[in-house]
Write a protein that binds this DNA or RNA. Structure first.
Lengths: 97, 97
DNA sequence: AAACTATTTGGTAATTTTGCCAAATACAAA
DNA sequence: TTTGTATTTGGCAAAATTACCAAATAGTTT
């Protein structure tokens, strides 16, 4: 695999890496219909708020979610709905056999 | 997040983890149209064959690829085409902004 | 300004993932 | 059976990920 191709797949892998964590997948489901703040998500999951902030940062960096600032809250919402389509398709295929 | 929901997202995360590696994404693209053996894939990527075998095992365990034995070769092919649909959609959305 | 709330950042220990080597296994061919 | 080729497995060191705590920053409210 040459360097150029290698970079292409490394970049694509970053997207999957960003999605490859239970908390981050929970976030995606939580903000698919309504926006939620860091604190709300933190309480829903039950982890340290700094940990939640870092998970959100990873998703935000890859433009999987986007945040809007209101007062001193930041409300996040899903920006790539096709993640959900993929998950339902993948689960269907994987659980079939 | 209660235990049941936690397990649901942990399971889903395993699928993304399985996909979250450059070599494994390369494999998926390589075997989307034609089946390829472990050795062929190893030579295409340029890594140790034992490393390739382990990557294939991860994809196989999650039923993302499936293998067919012919003589002493095992030919792998993609079993979840919707992975490709998701990737093209995700890249489109992510690179737009 | 001071006090308060929400979010982020830095640091670190624990866990997980990765890649190579060496050895084992599975078959095929001679 | 012996030889040869393909694939897998075990072990281990290096690299990456994760979660918490403590401290810093951003912004609001009084």
């Amino acid at each position: 695999m040459n360097t150029e191709i290698e970079k292409e797949f490394a970049d694509k892998a970053l997207i999957f890496k960003a999605l490859a964590h239970p908390t981050r997948l929970y976030i995606i489901h939580a903000v698919k219909d309504k926006s939620m703040s860091v604190k709300e998500l933190t309480e829903a999951v039950g982890i340290d708020i700094s940990t939640m902030s870092k998970h959100l940062d990873i998703l935000k960096k890859h433009k999987i979610i986007e945040g809007q600032k209101v007062k001193n809250y930041i409300y996040y919402k899903l920006s790539i709905p096709c993640v959900l389509d993929f998950m339902s398709c993948a689960l269907k295929v994987i659980n079939k056999k």
